[in-house]
Design a protein around this nucleic acid. Structure first.
Lengths: 341, 341
DNA sequence: CCCGCGTTGATAGGCGTCTATCAGGAATTG
DNA sequence: CAATTCCTGATAGACGCCTATCAACGCGGG
């Protein structure tokens, strides 16, 4: 049985296709009873507009904007690359995607960047900072009818339509369990290095990590978190300091970027074999360090998947189509030497 | 700049749209020089047919067939469920998907099932057995112009267009490394239980596992593989036997299905805490056992992703469009208690 | 009674492609 | 040179929906 079309709905409801169209796209005033009749017909026939035909017919293209952090953070660069790649692909499907960079550590800069986004966009995806200023900017966009999705780092209190990213608290717990198991039978200290504790994702990871480690692996003691600002040179100094101060350090969890710094510090100290290093984000640096054994485990979120998911969500919202929740769940990937892609 | 259309190509090449269409779809004989001119124009304008419009215009729908194993194997049931779900979704995009069950352990049955597939299908996805009989059946389909993709278990020597699944040798190595690290500092025996050694995926996993374990963790000795035919009752007996015979068994790797049997045997012996259990495929059973600690690690391939990937590949082949290799790579997922979805 | 308003119908034209048909010119064959 | 065959052009009509316009109807207010 073929799919129902607008014409089927029209004859089923005893109205004209023009009226069905008016109801579907709110194009003009329609009497409530008529609306009712049409909607009943739609339900009876289980009519769903053909998105392909609709996209084809709608002359204009969709315009989306991705706002990502500037700088040298390898994961963010990968994210930007993924955006560019998908932009190319989607350009062939009537979807135009722009990419903007901004300083994500500074609420005012990011907020201003968001406020500066004109009305030309149907949707915006942003790597957000959890800050009142940002919440306001997101809500302002939403008020203007722009769909906003947060990417990687969420602002749950805002009126963003969706969050594309992993459960960071679970990621932290995952790191802790693996750390505990890898260190089973050993006693000593475990250090944490984060990027910034004003990034929601980092706090959540740290929290999850400490929660599980303290509770389940009491023989391991946790050192206070250090902040490396996602800058590998700064991170290297912190790591060297930690190694120097604590000869009994046997585990390191790198919450943010800058894994390269830790790897170098470990190699300088020639302790890469005895210290279990768990870090986030698969990049060229971390992949290399994983293969040569300096890094033991990488916890990753797939930038390409996240970008594609964000686009799917924005498209669905633009088409007023439902999103398939289960398809949009970003996984917490665990990589060891043997299963890197 | 808007996309080029067939008409642009036609005027650029100085021919009619009809001729461009003939070149594009090989509909009738066209003089070689004309073909050349059209192809040049296509390259100059970077023309790419609009797949949406093409799908809309092509009245007929695509027909695909999925052939999966019958039986109670939880992963295969999940796979079949995923096929049904996607079939519903794709039905709204002019794609009809049929699902057929067969005994996959028997080459003749499976081969006959493949041979029985009529010419009504544009593509077939099959969970294959690596056997000459099956290779012939796949090649016969390919000869008839039916695109074949292998699913989960490959037949590399056949003319299947693509394999959708994980690198099983890498999966085995992954299991071995995790086993080795989880058991670090301990000495003892590690057992393996496979479904059948005529399934290519199982052999590869076993091979990868033994390779890494023997090489990198010499303090762990590997027991000979047992075959459980993916039947949890049989698997339970094997596991119980292993546990009885080897009081110093400290690790178990379940290559195939039937994890439930091992979990029960471990619980009966009250040794679930001391034995590290690594198994494949996330199902209700394994998820439960992972949470309560009987299973330590699950290595998974996402059935939903695999089905969607297979469909995308079949569709691309049908549209003669290129496939995005990197998007179709199925990952080896590692799940522990903390990152299960 | 006429006018305007709110509502609905009818229909045309377009989006980019596919499919099909007919006609006419060029090249080949006997 | 006539009869084919080969190649190409022109064009119509889908596919399912969007956008826009015009006409028509019933109703109430002035």
């Amino acid at each position: 049985m073929a799919r129902a079309t607008i014409e089927d709905v029209a004859s089923e409801a005893g109205v004209s296709v023009a009226t069905v169209d008016r109801v579907l796209n709110g194009r003009a005033a329609v009497r409530p009873q008529t609306v009712e009749r049409v909607e009943k017909a739609i339900r009876r026939l289980n009519y769903q507009p053909d998105r392909l035909a609709a996209r084809l017919a709608r002359a204009r293209e969709y315009r989306f904007c991705f706002v990502v952090p500037e700088g040298t953070n390898a994961f963010m660069i990968a994210l930007a690359d993924a955006v560019r790649e998908e932009a190319l692909r989607m350009a062939q499907e009537k979807v135009a995607i722009d990419l903007r960079f901004t300083d994500v550590f500074d609420a005012d800069t990011l907020g201003a960047a968001l406020d500066a986004i004109g009305n030309i966009y149907d949707g915006v995806a942003v790597v957000a900072l959890d800050h009142p200023r940002i919440r306001e900017s997101i809500n302002a966009l939403a008020d203007r009818g722009v769909t906003v999705v947060t990417l990687v780092s969420d602002v749950p209190s805002s009126r963003r339509a969706h969050f594309v990213g992993i459960d960071n608290s679970a990621a932290g717990r995952t790191a802790a369990t693996l750390m505990g198991r890898y260190l089973s039978g050993r006693k000593g200290k475990v250090g944490l290095i984060a990027g910034s504790l004003s990034l929601r994702d980092h706090i959540e990871r740290q929290f999850g990590f400490e929660q599980v480690l303290a509770h389940e692996y009491p023989e391991l003691s946790i050192l206070p978190v250090r902040e490396g600002r996602d800058d590998w040179k700064k991170v290297k100094k912190l790591a060297a300091q930690l190694l120097g101060d604590h000869p009994d350090l046997i585990g390191l969890y790198n919450v943010g970027a800058g894994a390269r710094g830790i790897a170098e510090a470990l190699e300088d100290a020639k302790r890469q074999r005895e210290v279990v290093l768990i870090t986030h984000e698969l990049t060229d640096d971390t992949r290399r360090a994983l293969i040569d054994g300096t890094i033991d485990i990488i916890i990753n979120q797939d930038a390409g998947h996240e970008v594609r998911s964000a686009i799917r969500v924005l498209l669905s919202k633009a088409d007023k189509a439902p999103i398939v929740e289960q398809m949009e769940r970003i996984r917490i990937d665990i990589y060891i030497r043997d299963n890197i892609p």
